[in-house]
Design a protein around this nucleic acid. Structure first.
Lengths: 263, 263
DNA sequence: GCAGTAGTGCGTATGTCATACGCAGAAGAC
DNA sequence: GTCTTCTGCGTATGACATACGCACTACTGC
């Protein structure tokens, strides 16, 4: 009498309350434990905790079901009593990593400042959990913490006068920016770690590489860039974030003005 | 006499001309064939072509060394005579997917228009090769086509009066935006394909899910959004792109003005 | 108390991957 | 003609996710 595509087997876990993705259901704290069989020797929190610990220490790639199980001193397959698939574990890990957003600035603060605080908080949280950037997105924010972040993002635009459609677009734009920024940082850091070079060294290498291949005729702008020595700066990751956010906010401000005039 | 970290084995391929990452070296067309041993029965173009064909038809995940080899009617391991590791194949696939940027608008066109054309071209090209968005980034653009795109992006700001540092930041910002936009689209499309739902259906489902869990007290902004029926619109992916780009360009324009005044 | 039953942990197996290693044969260099 | 340097490729190896089924446990209804 199992509903869903796959009947039988370990997929058919207890306490399903709806047709939601199991991970979402779990994250919202549904799924009551029917007090039948043996007491579970494990719980989701411990599993997710162990997985997060591994990810923090050795990166997301080190998180395998076997590894997590070993960490907990149980067998690999026992994890599947708590988690339908690895994707589900990923979702839960991400949820744990993001946590709830910090309290917003006092009401009355100008929207630009509030939005800045939100974006910065989002970046800091993401940056502290770089591994989480590697988790493939599987849909719009649907877990409690993600929704809370979205809520706070939307609320940050309260004083802007923007309509709901604009607000959601703005929030998606800004969070996409943050995600991309941090994700790119993570990728570069990973590449450098693999190559065993320092950030400065890789930048110099990169400059040399470009210099070697970019002839001034086909690539005048790049050549100029090299000659200007732009690639010799310290490439502060904070700088690119601040730069991008500033542009974004200026652009949003222009929208706010436009809508204010129009409506 | 092998240089490099790993001596011996198949890593030690012929024709190495420098200490560059092998993939980069290949992409720039270095690596002369020393006319010794048997004539190679394969070439990189055929390998990359087959890999791209698989990725187009079945997604990046379907691209395994074994699968590519089968496509070409050779054994898995023979590929490793042409490619040091799968990552290298990825880089070459991406290079093939992006191709060269289309010709820019006529000189004299305002920078905003040129930059728009560039961003749009980048998006279109990326969108036509969604699978390529799944390839992990391993560093700043270092292959010929990537550098060509960068060149054209930088050149698009010729009429803006921005300095070199600003230009590179702007280009990184815009290309990051495009990448994120298309990548998110790809993720959502993949998730929907896996769930077997249409885009409209998933949006409705998402709305229902939010409605179910977001109580109006904890999540007033989200609740308002739902009540406003914003999630019932068609969620045109073009719209979000256009919206974001417009904000970005407005923000960049503000910078141009500021620098123009200052310098 | 005592069945019945739904859960439990987990051993084992399957199938997929990337890739190390080494051999046999080919073809240009001397 | 021999030597060297390639080639293709068969055969491991060691991950990994996860299907399946067994043995055992602790509630539920009687």
């Amino acid at each position: 009498m199992a509903q869903g595509k796959q009947a039988g087997g370990s997929t058919d876990r207890p306490g399903r309350a709806s047709d939601l993705p199991a991970s979402v259901e779990v994250a919202w704290g549904l799924r009551e434990r029917p007090g039948k069989g043996p007491r579970p020797g494990l719980d989701l929190d411990r599993i997710v905790g162990a997985a997060v610990r591994i990810a923090e220490a050795e990166g997301l790639a080190a998180v395998s079901m076997g590894r997590v199980a070993k960490e907990l001193g149980v067998s690999t397959m026992s994890l599947y009593r708590y988690v339908a698939a690895k994707d589900e574990l990923y979702v839960l890990m991400q949820e744990a990593a993001m946590g709830l957003p910090p309290a917003p600035p006092a009401p009355g603060t100008p929207w630009r400042e509030v939005l800045t605080a939100w974006a910065t908080a989002l970046r800091d949280r993401s940056r502290r959990n770089l591994w989480a950037m590697r988790i493939p997105v599987d849909g719009p924010p649907a877990t409690p913490h993600s929704v809370a972040w979205m809520e706070q993002g939307l609320a940050s635009l309260d004083g802007s006068g923007l309509g709901d459609g604009d607000r959601i677009s703005v929030i998606m734009l800004v969070s996409g920016f943050v995600r991309n920024e941090v994700g790119t940082m993570a990728d570069l850091a990973a590449a450098q770690a693999k190559a065993g070079t320092t950030p400065e060294e890789s930048l110099v290498r990169y400059g040399r590489l470009l210099a070697r291949f970019t002839d001034p005729v086909r690539f005048p702008a790049v050549t100029r860039l090299l000659e200007a020595g732009v690639l010799e700066g310290p490439d502060d990751p904070d700088y690119e974030f601040a730069f991008g956010l500033e542009r974004l906010l200026d652009g949003i401000e222009a929208l706010v003005r436009k809508r204010g005039v129009a409506g």
